[in-house]
């Protein structure tokens, strides 16, 4: 779905710099950011943290039938990445020939996610690359 300009603008810090949150009470890290810690609820104390972008592949798939806005990218690898701080994220894995496995180390890279029509907005965010690739 085409994302609105205010929504994209609002999410810039999280999507550009992997800015998430962590609960000081239980230590659990969350990405995307949360206002309350679901485990500690009112006893929780949320602070902002910047994720390193290093992690491992927890599960992966190759998308052959893409949603609107991703037609030119398909087929592409999509994965659940476990970040080294503990939180997991959904993201594409790019610049790889398909040798992705569960457990493969990866690192976040800054990329174009979607592009509206030629005159429209460019939506940026994170994708991942295999950490061993140069």
């Amino acid at each position: 779905m085409k994302e609105s300009i205010p929504l994209t603008w609002r999410r810039i810090p999280e999507r550009y710099t992997l800015l998430g949150t962590q609960c000081e009470t239980c230590g659990k890290a969350y990405f995307p950011p949360r206002i309350i810690c679901p485990q500690c609820r009112r006893k929780g104390k949320i602070k902002k943290i910047k994720f390193s972008g290093r992690g491992k592949v927890y599960s992966y798939t190759k998308i052959f039938v893409p949603p609107e806005g991703f037609e030119k990218q398909a087929p592409y690898m999509l994965a659940v990445i476990e970040l080294e701080e503990g939180a997991r994220v959904t993201a594409q894995i790019v610049d790889t020939c398909g040798d992705v496995k569960i457990g493969s180390p990866v690192r976040a890279v800054f990329r174009i996610i979607q592009r509206d029509d030629p005159e429209g907005l460019i939506h940026y965010g994170f994708k991942f690359r295999l950490a061993n690739d140069t």
């Binding site: 779905m1 999410r11 998308i63 039938v65 893409p66 949603p67 999509l78 959904t90 594409q92 979607q114």
Partner: peptide, 13 residues
Amino acid sequence: QEWELFLGATFPG
């Protein structure tokens, strides 16, 4: 929508 679908996920995915 903001953290799965926006990033390229689909339901089959």
